[in-house]
Design a protein around this nucleic acid. Structure first.
Lengths: 224, 224
DNA sequence: TATTATATGATAGTAATACTATTATATGCA
DNA sequence: TGCATATAATAGTATTACTATCATATAATA
């Protein structure tokens, strides 16, 4: 497998968008500015009308790319998980040590992706994932959306990291549970550190978060 | 401390409601039917107009009890955590073993509260907590709401369980992180089991979820 | 070059949402 | 009996979440 940063395009299920936003300048503006606008005003206050106004286009044009703002959020989260997947594969490409691979994966999940992305500001996207991504599945239509594969990228990350852990301990019975707990945990702890600090134990130390969860995983999967 | 089920009233910060719904028949209808309606149609589709229609009252009357539907959700979550807190204290009242206390706490968090509640259907409330409670803090106004104490009940549960764990290992440095991870984890896993099963490892086995997290906690806090 | 498909812009409209305000009526308490 | 308070009834407003129509600009094709 040949991996190169510049050639990366996210692998996103077609049903998420009406028209691929990466195939036109307007589409790219929509996701770029949309990402920023959600970060600025929050997903609840975010509307296609406001987005169109900021870009200098019309509401109707935005609707030509995305069915509704919820699908737009799904697009952003899928984009993010696709990036994460790609980076994990890149970083772990030539490594044999599963523990090292796990550490890398947790580090990638625990901070914004550093590589430049011409489409989206990854720092802002990371912030949006922490604040808004739960809302992409905590909805009544989750089963329907899941049926057509709209959570594919998220599920794939869980599978990828689960595989790494199973190489450390092939007998552990609850990998997926552990992995989804940890992924949600990392992002949630960052939110708590910023807004509800009594729910976490935060110093200004960098990178202690992936370390904590690395320790948690290894302790949990150890047979005793 | 004297604990008796029948005398329980939730401890809810006044700023969450405009007028205490437990002090009038209409108020009690609002929270009872509101709880059911959210479960039925989801928080996004839930409106005070629909709620009023179901009760046979007016939108304006509902607004006399709650400022907006978001505060209403906060009321439900505070109510829930208040119940949980109360049940944990009750169950652990005469126990000395911290491990047993922890197990009890996790079991209470992992299933609907069984005791009868004249105000709210606890089965439905539990379901709403799993599906909707994250939305009570994943919002732009979180800091403002936190400042006036609206997350008190949730924070208190985390503190209560943290204290239990610290009695098992007083040196563990990341209790709050661990506890909030586990609480969110339990509820999330139930959601995943119902809707995104590949993110968890679910059989139809009862109660394995609290057991898993009990093991996770004990493994993690063990010094090695 | 003429034709045609496609993308976007401009404009309008609709039902529902998230409220706020006003007035009337009923009930309970002093 | 009078007064306070709670609720009902009704109306109104700005915004949201769309959908529809028609015009125009550009690009691809014959």
């Amino acid at each position: 497998m040949h991996l190169s940063l510049s050639s990366f395009t996210p692998n996103i299920v077609h049903d998420i968008y009406v028209k691929n936003p990466l195939q036109s300048p307007l589409g790219m503006e929509i996701i770029r500015v949309g990402n920023e606008l959600i970060a600025e005003i929050g997903f609840e206050a975010f509307t296609f009308r406001k987005l169109a106004a900021q870009i200098g286009t019309t509401e109707a044009s935005v609707y030509r790319y995305f069915e509704n703002k919820h699908k737009f959020l799904l697009y952003l989260t899928s984009y993010y998980w696709s990036w994460v997947e790609y980076h994990i594969l890149m970083r772990n490409n030539n490594l044999l040590d599963a523990c090292r691979q796990l550490k890398n994966a947790l580090e990638i999940i625990g901070s914004p992706i550093k590589a430049d992305d011409k489409n989206l500001n990854q720092e802002i996207l990371f912030y949006n994932i922490i604040n808004e991504s739960s809302k992409s599945y905590l909805i009544k239509s989750v089963d329907e959306l899941n049926k057509v594969g709209l959570y594919y990228n998220y599920k794939k990350i869980v599978a990828t990291i689960s595989d790494i852990i199973l190489r450390i301990n092939p007998d552990f019975k609850y990998v997926h549970m552990l992995v989804s707990t940890v992924i949600e945990g990392i992002h949630h702890q960052i939110f708590f550190a910023n807004h509800l600090p009594s729910l976490t134990d935060t110093d200004t130390e960098e990178n202690y978060l992936p370390d904590f969860y690395y320790h948690l995983i290894l302790s949990t999967i150890k047979n005793d």
